[in-house]
């Protein structure tokens, strides 16, 4: 090592400080409500946060490449509604087939986003702002404004997230599975590394033969795929498919990324940071009622956290730049 901290070290620092922040948050909440930090409650929080973890990891890839996906909430809404209605109409169909349909719908929607960005040259923000409305709109068209409620769903469908294995709920296992796969993709596959390249320096990426189109298709498809999975999980977990499912959820996923140290301009970030960021958001959401704050405050707090986290990222980037300059001519 040449006196300059390596990639691993900087990342570690971000992640350790997040871990400390989470511990501090837990401590503060525990002071107000001693029962908060129990194995059972923590498991409940992680369970509640699993969906956020999955979708945030999809969002992570998009942001990493320098884009943004605002349509994840609407994809969750549609795939959840479609899967629930399929489950209602064909109760004999095995639950995993319904799950697969939900995932495929999400994948297709994500691929549509990707195609518009990659081939249509429509900027990600415009594409997903548009498809956010379109996907939400066709959810209403599909459901004719109706809901699917608990007694219209099969037991097997609801067990997708609710069952448990080794004493841990299936939903957490799903979260672990998605995290593991996407960690592997981001770390050990060529395409995964090429996402970093596109986000870091598009021209250079082209010079070394990275296909921007391929990567753009891939990241939006991944984001759509995990959103599709999340839609099924969401409706099965809350035993209801409503038309407004996951409205505004995109902000939470962006928040998890930003808190986790992902640069909004693309090119840097890590899966572990995003998971910690999502957990941080999950704890706050769960802690609000415990410390007697109105759940209606949630929206404000989320926004404030995102702004604050970005402010920290920006300022620390500026400070780091200054320090580097000082070293250069010294």
């Amino acid at each position: 090592m040449k006196g300059i901290p390596s990639f691993g070290k900087i990342k570690q620092r971000r992640e350790t400080s997040l871990v400390f922040l989470i511990l501090l948050l837990l401590l503060v909440v525990t002071l107000r409500s001693p029962g908060f930090v129990s194995i059972k409650n923590l498991q409940r929080i992680i369970n509640d946060t699993s969906i956020l973890v999955m979708v945030s990891l999809g969002q992570f890839f998009v942001i990493l490449a320098g884009g943004i996906d605002l349509s994840v909430g609407s994809i969750i809404g549609f795939s959840g509604m479609a899967a629930s209605m399929l489950n209602e109409a064909q109760p004999t169909l095995p639950a995993f087939v319904v799950l697969l349909v939900g995932v495929l719908i999400g994948t297709a929607f994500g691929a549509l986003n990707g195609a518009l960005v990659a081939f249509g040259k429509v900027p990600p923000i415009i594409t997903t702002l548009g498809t956010m409305s379109i996907f939400r709109g066709i959810t209403f068209v599909l459901s004719k404004g109706q809901w699917v409620t608990a007694h219209e769903m099969t037991e097997a469908y609801m067990l997708l997230p609710h069952g448990n294995f080794l004493g841990i709920s299936n939903l957490i296992w799903w979260g672990v599975l998605v995290s593991t796969v996407l960690y592997y993709v981001s770390r050990f596959t060529r395409s995964g590394r090429e996402v970093f390249a596109i986000g870091g320096n598009k021209t250079a990426a082209k010079f070394v033969g990275v296909s921007e189109r391929k990567i753009t298709m891939m990241i939006f498809t991944i984001s759509g795929m995990v959103s599709g999975l999340a839609g099924v999980m969401w409706t099965a977990r809350y035993a209801a498919a409503v038309n407004e499912t996951a409205t505004g959820f995109e902000l939470q996923t962006v928040a998890a990324c930003v808190i986790g140290g992902v640069s909004i301009a693309g090119g840097s970030g890590a899966v572990s940071g995003v998971i910690l960021g999502a957990l941080f958001m999950g704890i706050i959401n769960n802690a609000l009622p415990v410390i007697n704050l109105s759940p209606f405050l949630q929206l404000f707090i989320q926004g404030a956290i995102v702004l604050f986290a970005m402010l920290i990222n920006t300022l620390s980037e500026v400070r780091r730049g200054k320090k580097l300059l000082q070293e250069r001519l010294a």
């Binding site: 970093f196 390249a197 870091g200 320096n201 021209t203 250079a204 990426a205 090119g267 840097s268």
Partner: peptide, 9 residues
């Protein structure tokens, strides 16, 4: 031109 990825190793 600068054709490198500054954030990568």
């Amino acid at each position: 031109e600068a054709s490198m990825f500054p954030e990568l190793s």
